[in-house]
Amino acid sequence: MDWFGAADGGPMVATRAIHFAATAIVTGTLVFQAVVANPALRSQEAAAKPFRTQTRYVAWISLAVAVISGLAWVLLLTMSLSDESLGEAITSGALRDVLNLTQFGSVSQIRLALAILLAFCLAFERSAFWRWLGLGAAVGLIASIAWTGHAASTPHKLGYLHLGADVLHLTAAAAWIGGLVPLALLLGAGKHHQGRAGLELDVVRRFSALGIASVATLILSGIINAWILVGSFHALVITGYGQLLMLKLAVFAAMLAFAAINRLSLMPRLALPSADTQQDALRGLSRNTLIEIGFGLFLFAVVGVLGTLHPAAHLVQ
């Protein structure tokens, strides 16, 4: 089983993984701002200003990487379908055909429009209208990936269920894993400022609630996706797709373990009166968040491979 060579080659796998990660980070950052940071920092203007500057950089950089990797994805697919070099694929009309005659091409154009809209929203984010529109565009950018993958080709009424589950899965993954990046920035800033434990506690509590909702959504939608794409325990065990999915589940479980430690052990210590205990808890939370980000990036790499493999279900029918 050549997982990392996959059907479409290493560059395609890497491009997809980078695109998923970058899109999740820009979406997760905006979700974090709306649900966690803005309510928590409402009366903390001194802490809010540098955080907003940092997250603005994160959003812009991840959006730029998402756009570039999205364009590379279109070009690599065109080269693969036409069996032509990059120059030939552009000049021969193959790129035009992929863009205009396939669902992937149409969805890619819509997603590029969403990315441009999101860029405008980031540029004018001082207005609440643009912030909420930007959040909508970012969620659209991650959710629309569902129409480019396995869920898009599932026929009949089951296809609607598969697409719905995939939309929820992608959005929840972005909210949780993407949101870890601004969380790490905020916790990192807190390490250098005594007396901010109240703010950090509020932030971690809010993010924990967001994380629980995201994890519940990921598990439910993941079960639906696995039922459609894997189909049975037998297929999960004997196919490369199934084995890679089990690796994904193992990494997911490790992330959950860290999340549980954060919520059940470290978060309560932020509420204790001792400044030293608070700082220790903050350091632990920062470290665990960075580890979770590492696991999350690995998950996106696995997803990059999974999408290029033949799913297990039909291989064992």
Binding site: H150, S153, T154, L158, V215, I219, G222, I223, A226, W227, I228, L229, V230, G231, S232, F233, L236, L249, F252, A253, L256, H310, P311, A313, H314, Q317
Partner: peptide
């Protein structure tokens, strides 16, 4: 919850495919 996931696969059987 993690321990439950593999169990759910055990009960999940489908006749649908992909690709």
């Amino acid at each position: 919850l993690i321990a439950v996931i593999p169990l759910l696969f055990l009960f999940a059987t489908g006749e649908v495919g992909a690709h």
